[in-house]
């Protein structure tokens, strides 16, 4: 599904990613771990197409298509979803209105008709239940005055509504207490299927107790220094990152 080849990326002329290779197939969950400043969030932003990062070498290929020339919204239309580490506030725009706009813009780009009010409502009801979201929450301004946990839950709710092919969860566990973490992880697990793939970016092993990865990669100074199965996460938890440097 997603192939990353020898990816190098800069921000303000400083090289952050120094040659990343990744191969993610449909139905897989990959965890990317690493210390602060190793380039985890940069990788997520580069895949999503954030402008301030400049790709200097290498490619990101989604289902055989090079994403290089695509704007972030076009990438989203192709099925890339990023759950933000720090979701932004948009005052006056309700969660429902925002999601409806996002769904319809994506459908429009893919030459589909707008979703009917009835279908949208049904879907909202279903996914809100899955993530134990109170209906009142949906009429609030997007992320405005949300607690850290509410923001993250809202990100996963959007993921559930948009049904992406590739979801990148950037430190979704930060700011969540254990109960919220379980709800979110449970939601993600239910959204997982053989046709989509998930990249989980995290500092800690904790989230990986609930979302079980097929592969774990350790990022250090802009490179993947070690890859392995889920047991690698446990090893990291025990030993820290120093032994890999």
């Amino acid at each position: 599904m997603l192939k990353i080849k020898n990816l190098h990326a800069n921000i303000n002329d400083k090289e952050i990613l120094k040659g990343i290779d990744l191969d993610i197939k449909a139905g897989e969950v990959h965890a990317i771990m690493g210390p602060n400043g190793s380039g985890k969030s940069t990788l997520a932003s580069v895949i999503a197409g954030k402008e301030e990062y400049e790709v200097t070498k290498g490619n990101v290929i989604l289902n055989g298509e090079d994403l290089d020339d695509m704007a972030p919204d076009e990438r989203a239309h192709k099925g890339i979803f990023l759950s933000f580490q720090y979701p932004v506030e948009i005052p006056g725009v309700s969660v429902t209105n925002f999601i409806k706009t996002a769904i319809n813009e994506t459908r429009k780009a893919n030459k589909q008709e707008e979703i009917s009010a009835k279908d949208l409502l049904k879907k909202i009801r279903e996914k809100a239940e899955l993530l134990e979201i109170d209906r009142k929450f949906l009429s609030r301004s997007l992320n405005e005055g949300f607690s850290g946990g509410e923001k993250k839950r809202n990100e996963i709710f959007q993921m559930a509504m948009l049904e992406p092919k590739l979801a990148i969860l950037d430190e979704t566990d930060s700011g969540l207490d254990i109960d919220a973490l379980k709800i979110v992880a449970n939601g993600v697990n239910k959204l997982k299927n053989k046709d989509n793939a998930i990249i989980v970016i995290t500092h800690y092993q904790r989230l990986l107790d609930y979302i079980i990865p097929d592969y774990v990669h350790v990022l250090h100074q802009g490179k993947i220094v070690k890859s392995g199965g889920k047991e690698l996460a446990l090893e990291l938890e025990e030993k820290g990152y120093d032994w890999l440097k």
Binding site: A48, G49, K50, E51, E52, A71, P72, D73, R75, A76, H77, I80, F81, L82, F84, P87, V88, I90, F98, T101, A102, I103, E105, T106, A109, Q158, L162
Partner: peptide, 13 residues
């Protein structure tokens, strides 16, 4: 730009 990128990432031009 963060607000705009957030919207873009959700498929909103």
């Amino acid at each position: 730009e963060d607000q705009l990128f957030y919207c873009n990432q959700r498929g909103i031009d």
